[in-house]
Design a binder for these strands. Structure first.
Length: 460
RNA sequence: GUGGAUGUAGUUCAGUUGGUUAGAACGUCGGAUUGUGGUUCCGAAGGUCGCCGGUUCGAACCCGGUCUUCCACCCCA
């Protein structure tokens, strides 16, 4: 015997039972995406590393899975480089492909490459796995599915509004209570400008993102550690201490950021967005969260993050506007906005909230018992008949003991069994057994259609 | 990438200060019942104790390394 088989760290197999539940999530999401006029695309699992590198910040580059070149890849590395054991240097020579890290960057690449055939504004959705060489833990996997919706080629804030409607629609259908947090990167830039550290926007936002978690003092300490001046940090305090409802916060911010053109722009964008939101009935809570930063450094406008109110698992959905993602691929001035649903985390939330209970476990409605060669022809004709009535049916492939066949039906939760042996064949009937009541009756072949309509289809 | 916990049958878990042949439940298979599942009864199969090395007369147990899973940090869906 060889050693026990296993799968790579952070990856998972999905059982039939899990797949039914996952498909329910994907179907729900897809249905809503289509309802709002989005169309599907797919891109390859692997991209050229030149497409992926530098798009996700330093941290992101480290988390990219790289694919070793085929063939004699070491011939391009000379002895000196080999001797220095500089992994980064060597890997760039022997790996030119990597697994996709998200769906947004491949999408931007797709748009640039297919601009001649795309009608703008382009509304697409994409549901595919992505890979990150992260250390796995709760709600974090190395292979997971993202469900992205993006509009590219339109600056209108109506798109941001539409995405929030989609979020609300999907989570309402899935019966997950959520909070949608919204912020705007321009405001964060304005704040960085306001405190006199415009270049440190990343450090500043990463630190204030943790405000909720670690508190104000720890945030200030982290900023000091990052080398921010005491003056800058003290200037930041009124921002961190902002209180009140959305409008109050925005008004106060408008006063503080009065000298920052970008900041003012961000505030006006948020005001417009909240006006749209205010005019619509939503099930989810929507709030302005100035501490919301999000790591991806390509966002330039709105930033959106969605959290479950009942399960603590990080964000289950996130996104924002990126003004020039296609620019790095040579197509300037095209703005896009999109969000991504984390299907695996949504699954975990639904499991924890026990919201899958009503989902049907078996898809097979009728099992036909196999008695042997002589009876097979008759059984197969019934099988065809059932399927022609749109009844999902199967014929047990081996003529083993009845007990075994019935246990199979039992284990698969198949609600009906059809028994057709010598007796039944001679009379052109079948015996139908209802597995939950144990009740049995004989049905003439000519009455099968009525039986299906009256009994099997009725209980669905 | 940093720190902590974990790993024993298909699964969930017992396993005495290191001492004969490593147990249970569930599941699987066979039988009670050759045309009737779920309940019951009887029986059987199933283990390189994660992997590699060390200490010891002797290791599931002690030590080192490694991998997996889980948890926290970093970061993130």
């Amino acid at each position: 015997m060889s050693s026990k088989p296993s799968i790579p760290k952070g990856t998972r197999d999905f059982s039939t039972d899990e797949m039914l539940k996952r498909e329910y999530i994907f179907e729900t999401i897809k249905k809503v995406f289509r309802l709002y006029g989005y169309q599907p695309i797919e891109t390859p699992a692997m991209e050229n590393l030149t497409t992926l590198l530098g798009k996700y910040g330093e941290e992101g580059d480290k988390l990219l899975f790289r694919i070793l070149n085929s063939g004699d890849f070491l011939s391009s590395v000379n002895d000196e480089e080999m001797g220095r054991r500089d992994t980064g240097k060597i890997s760039s020579k022997i790996c030119e492909k990597g697994l996709r890290y998200d769906l947004t960057v491949p999408f931007a690449r797709y748009v640039v490459q297919h601009r001649d055939e795309i009608v703008f504004p382009f509304k697409r959705y994409q549901i595919q796995p992505v890979w990150r060489a992260d250390r796995p833990q709760k709600g974090r996997y190395r292979e997971f599915f993202q469900c992205d919706v993006d509009v590219i080629g339109s600056d209108s804030l109506l798109n941001e509004y539409e995405l929030i409607k989609i979020v609300d629609d999907i989570f309402s259908r899935l019966k997950i209570a959520t909070v949608v947090k919204i912020n705007n990167r321009k405001i964060l830039a304005g704040i960085a400008e306001f405190i006199g550290e415009p270049d440190r926007i990343i450090d500043i936002t990463v630190a204030i993102d943790k405000l909720d978690k670690i508190g104000m003092e720890a945030v200030n300490a982290e900023l000091t550690g990052k080398g921010l001046s005491a003056e800058a940090i003290s200037n930041l305090q009124p921002v961190l201490q902002l209180q009140g409802n959305t409008e109050e916060k925005l008004s106060r911010l408008a006063e503080l950021l009065v000298n920052s053109e970008t900041g003012i722009k961000g505030i006006s964008e948020l005001r417009t967005l909240f006006e749209f939101i205010g005019g619509s009935a939503l099930n989810c809570e929507v709030e302005l969260d100035l501490t919301l930063a999000r790591g991806l450094n390509y966002y330039t406008g709105a930033i959106i993050e969605v959290k479950s109110k009942d399960v603590s698992i990080g964000s289950i959905c996130g996104g924002g506007r990126y003004d020039n993602l296609t620019g790095v691929f040579g197509m300037e001035g095209v703005s896009g906005v999109g969000i991504s649903f984390g299907a695996d985390r949504i699954y975990d939330v639904l499991i924890q909230l026990n919201l899958f209970s009503e989902l049907k476990v078996s898809s097979t409605e009728v099992l036909i018992v196999n008695f042997g060669e002589k009876e097979t022809k008759y059984a197969l004709s019934i099988l065809d008949m059932l399927r022609s009535f749109d009844v999902s049916a199967e014929f047990y492939p081996d003529s083993v003991k009845l007990k075994k066949q019935m246990s199979y039906a039992d284990a698969k939760k198949i609600p009906y069994i059809i028994i057709a042996g010598e007796d039944e064949i001679s009379k052109s009937i079948v015996t139908v057994k209802n597995m939950s009541t144990g009740e049995q009756k004989t049905i003439a072949l000519k009455d099968m259609k009525t039986f299906v309509a009256d009994e099997i289809k009725k209980s669905e």
